[in-house]
């Protein structure tokens, strides 16, 4: 089973991106084999609907869970409709996040934790 992680860079050594819809990369990884696929997120620059588009993109990759820093309402709705677990508040390196996920340290959330457009604010951009 694969999981999707938002990342600032294109490998497992990258930092987890605190934004979902407007993250820089999605890393789709098998937590057991650590085989991964990198998807550059072209929704990053979208004026609106970044969360919807990113949600749909991740959903087509057949992941069971998404690990990210923050998620807005539209993206959450897409992932929820696709039956994908959403884990927010994740930070640090991607490979550490994978380890924590395997150890069962994360709990899926029941709702979005930020408003629409969070990823365009200064806070969301990581300063």
């Amino acid at each position: 089973m694969k999981i999707g992680i938002t990342a600032r860079g294109n490998n497992l050594d990258s930092e987890v991106d605190p934004r979902f819809g407007r993250c820089e990369y999605f890393i789709i990884v098998d937590p057991d084999t650590l085989e991964f696929e990198v998807i550059e997120n072209f929704s990053m620059e979208a004026a609106s609907g970044a969360g919807v588009q990113s949600g749909q993109l991740v959903a087509t990759k057949g992941v069971e869970a998404v690990l990210t820093g923050n998620i807005g309402p539209n993206a959450f709705q897409v992932l929820q409709a696709a039956g994908i677990k959403v884990i927010t508040g994740v930070s640090g390196k991607v490979e550490e996040a994978i380890e924590k996920y395997k150890r069962g340290e994360f709990k899926p959330v029941e709702s979005s934790n930020v408003d629409s457009k969070f990823g365009i604010s200064e806070k969301g951009m990581g300063g």
């Binding site: 979208a46 609907g49 749909q56 959903a59 087509t60 696709a82």
Partner: peptide, 17 residues
């Protein structure tokens, strides 16, 4: 405007977008 998301077996509409 990404007002639609198509998932396997499901289409979501986001009227506000």
């Amino acid at each position: 405007y990404h007002a639609l998301a198509v998932l396997p077996g499901k289409v979501l509409v986001f009227p506000h977008l």
